[in-house]
């Protein structure tokens, strides 16, 4: 196989595995937006917080899966507190909610900095996925096992969310709510409780993705902005509130960033935003978003 081709295969694999991380981060964001119409500007900060919870729990217990669970649970508890304490009081005022979450994000990030300092933390991957595995057609013949494992994780998240949305009663309410909220409450469903569930789930996904991100990459307090933006771009491209859209958006953005970084490093990050503007100019609701 020629060098050019192995390069390309490797870069695409990099893009797809990065997309897996982006998808897990963005899934919670799109879920919350889809139902609650709340733009959770603290989503990146929740990612950071989840990552630090993971760092601490893994450091104490030595168990990666416990860190993942703790990241999910603690951040979803925080999400419940934020939703009950602040956002539920301004239901429907989407701009005001976005503003409040900006303030929360500033505070979470600053307090993380105060507690953990600015040094990078890494979470050691679970034993099984440490190191590299041999696969043909990639540069050097080896590829990071954890990055491949992220693909499995992303697929598992997708499947779990799909099952919740399509095979459970609350999922039915959520889908109904995404399509028509007024109708949902008219049916006598306790909308407030459905909203709370979704917000907690979305926040938990952000926290969990932080643990995964801190394992694959690393974590510092100032990473919130980047992952908030990635989530924004992914769901804008894919279509707000659509799980499949988030997956497609993540794939496009992950691939574009890695291919860009390989072939045109100077503008690799900018390319992401060109794609987004291009999609929007043609389809304002995103690739899989529902038009009005």
């Amino acid at each position: 196989m020629s060098k050019d081709l192995t390069d390309f295969v490797t870069v695409c694999l990099n893009g797809v595995t990065l997309a897996a991380l982006y998808f897990i981060v963005a899934s919670g964001f799109t879920l919350i937006f889809g139902l609650l119409r709340t733009t959770n500007m603290a989503h990146g900060a929740m990612y950071v917080l989840g990552a630090y919870v993971g760092v601490s729990v893994v450091a104490i217990t030595g168990e990666w899966w416990l860190g993942l669970l703790a990241g999910f649970v603690l951040v979803s508890l925080l999400g419940i507190a934020i939703h009950l304490g602040l956002l539920a009081w301004m239901a429907g005022q989407d701009l005001r909610q976005a503003l409040v979450t900006i303030g929360i994000a500033i505070i979470i990030v600053d307090l993380s900095l105060a507690h953990y300092g600015g040094v990078a933390y890494l979470i050691p991957p679970p034993e099984l996925f440490a190191g590299a595995v041999s696969i043909p057609w990639v540069v050097g013949g080896q590829y990071s096992a954890f990055r491949l494992f992220m693909l499995v994780l992303a697929a598992a998240v997708y499947l779990a969310l799909w099952l919740i949305l399509n095979r459970t009663r609350i999922g039915m309410y959520i889908r109904a709510g995404i399509d028509d909220r007024d109708m949902l409450s008219a049916l006598g469903v306790n909308v407030a409780r459905v909203f709370l569930f979704v917000f907690a789930l979305g926040a938990g996904l952000a926290g969990m993705s932080g643990v995964i991100g801190a394992t694959a990459l690393s974590i510092t307090p100032n990473e919130d902005g980047w992952f908030l933006l990635s989530s924004l771009v992914v769901v804008i491209v894919g279509g707000m509130g659509s799980l499949g859209g988030a997956a497609i958006g993540a794939l496009i953005i992950g691939l574009a960033q890695q291919i860009g970084l390989f072939y045109a490093p100077t503008y690799s990050i900018f390319i992401t935003f060109v794609i987004m503007a291009g999609v929007l100019a043609v389809r304002p609701q995103g690739l899989l978003g529902k038009p009005a």
Binding site: G103, I106, I107, V109, A114
Partner: peptide, 11 residues
């Protein structure tokens, strides 16, 4: 921690 103060004031 001036950022915390700014964040609080904003909220």
């Amino acid at each position: 921690r001036f950022n915390t103060l700014i964040g609080l004031a904003f909220v």
